[in-house]
Each structure stands twice: as structure tokens, then as C-alpha cells.
Amino acid sequence: MSKPDPRPREHWEFFWPMMQGRTEVQGALRLCRELDDSALDELLRHHSKSTVDGMVEIERRDVFDKALQAHSLIAVALFSGYFPESLGAAESKQILELLGREPVRKYYEERYPVLLPSLLRLHVAGQVKLPRETSEDAWGGFQWLVRFSSRFERDPHLATFNNLLDGFSYGDLNIQVFLDSLTDSKAALSGFAKPPELCTRRESAALGMLRFLTFCRELEPALRAMEGVPLTQSACWFFYAYWFKGFAEDVGGRAEECLKVLETWLTQSTEIGIRAERDVKMSVLETRDAVTALVDGRYAAPIINRLRLK
């Protein structure tokens, strides 16, 4: 019998300590320890139950969102075989302390459903054994996701736009009011020369919209290229599935509205050069195709079918 490849263990031994250094992971664990179930359940409520508008609440929920993202990354690494199947007793215990806590579980399974933390919890608890790919192509796919996500995760404008997509409102500004306000490109893009903290919510959302379209335009071709490692491809898609699955109709429709706004701006612009006009048109077409592929479910299929999920 051949020896197991030592590299997944090596990857994990570097990743786990670095994850412990992330303030949101420690912050989420600390909140789990400080708050009783009732307080935690209230903190992690769905926003339709009562508005989330206090600064402390928003910051604390953000800590959980980022901690869940960090754990989702572990699940992607398991599918790609980048980490070993068994993560270790102490590590598993800590993962379950967060993901197994009832109010936290309701948050990511019922109120704002994301699949990867659930699968990680079941895997670590020994209830499900996640299937694995083990090729270096799959590992490359995981590494690509680490880099790609690090480019977008701290973008405040993207966060503003995504919150609007998610149904949040800032005062009178909701997604429809925002989209309706985009008729004048100069006014819409007045935030371009401002540092993020001086932008209004509307200006921030406009820049976030462009960032979101760029994000889609880069994500989809990368997923398509991973067709030879379908579990990794699907896991990378599920890493962002919240935006493309739970809200598929909204996101697809809203993205199309955004692209139509760009096309309108293009026809209104009097100073754009021929080459630039061609480039913008091409970008719009590519982004439209990318969004279509991201919301039609094709990238969900490998994991759904393999795990026989409904």
C-alpha cells in the first residue's frame, strides 16, 4: 500500500493557525461563549423579524458572516482534497463549537441558508463523509479561490451593493430606489474620486455594483475552466452560492438591470473612444453570459448530485 500524500496535512497545518489569527473567527467564538442561546438567537435573527440597525449588532453579525466564510473555505478545501479528510480532534471540537451551536446553525441553515458550513459540520461530526478530489488541478482551484476571495472580501462598496441586493435598506435607499437613481451617470458615479469613508451609501452602492459585475465576469470563466474537477468547481460556486442560489431570480434580474444601465450610459456618452466603446460592449456581453451561467444552477449540480441533496 502506498503512503498517503503528506501535503494535505501540511496545507492544513499552515492554514489552521492562520485561521486562528483571524479576528472574526475569534470574535465569533467569543460571542458564542458570552451569549446564551436566547441572546444569540436574537442577534442572528432574520432581518424581516426586526430591523438590524444598531452599530454593535451590525458589527457582531458581520463577525459571524466572516467566520462562516472562513469555515466555508475549509469545506471547499475538503472537496478539493487540499486538506486531509480528518482535521484533528481539537480542530473539530472548535469547529463544532461554532457551527453546532443551535442559533448559529439556524442562521446559516434557515435564515440565510448557505450549504458549505452545514456540510462541514456534518463531516466533522462524522455524519457525512464529503467526497474528495485529489489532483493538483483541484488544489489549484482551491488556491485560486483563496486569492480571488481575498481580492473581494474587504471591499466596502461591494458590501453595500450586496446588502441592497439582499433586501437591506439604508434609510430610504433600497435596491429599487438605487437602480432607479442610476439614470444620470455623472451623478451616480460621483463617488469615484472619494475615499470609501466619504462616499454616500448611494455612491458606495454604485461603485459596488460595478465591482459585483467585475466579480461575476471573473468568477464564471474560472469555474468553467474547472470542469475537470467538478467537485471543486461546485464547491467554489457554493462558496458564493448565497448570491446566486437563494436569490437567483433577484440577482439575475438585478444584474440585468445594472447591465442595461451601463448600456444606456454608453449610448449617452459623447466622449468615449471607438476602442473603449468596443471594450465596454464586450464587457457587458461577457458579464451577461457570466451571470446567466452563475444563476442557472449548472455549477450546483456536481455536489447536489453526488450527495443526493434536494
Binding site: 469615484f192 474620486a193 467585475t214 454608453l266 465596454v280 464587457s283
Partner: peptide, 23 residues
């Protein structure tokens, strides 16, 4: 320089008119 700084957005040529450098 201000407008080129936004070239990570592929549709940047559309917005050059909107840029005012005050920083």
C-alpha cells in the same frame, strides 16, 4: 491619474467624465 486608477473596472472609459481629482 485619477481616472486610470479605476481601470480595474472594465467599463472605466464610461466614467472618465465623472472623475474629479481632489485628493
Amino acid at each position: 491619474v485619477a481616472s486610470a486608477a479605476f481601470s480595474n473596472v472594465p467599463w472605466v472609459p464610461l466614467f472618465v467624465e465623472a472623475v474629479k481629482a481632489k485628493v
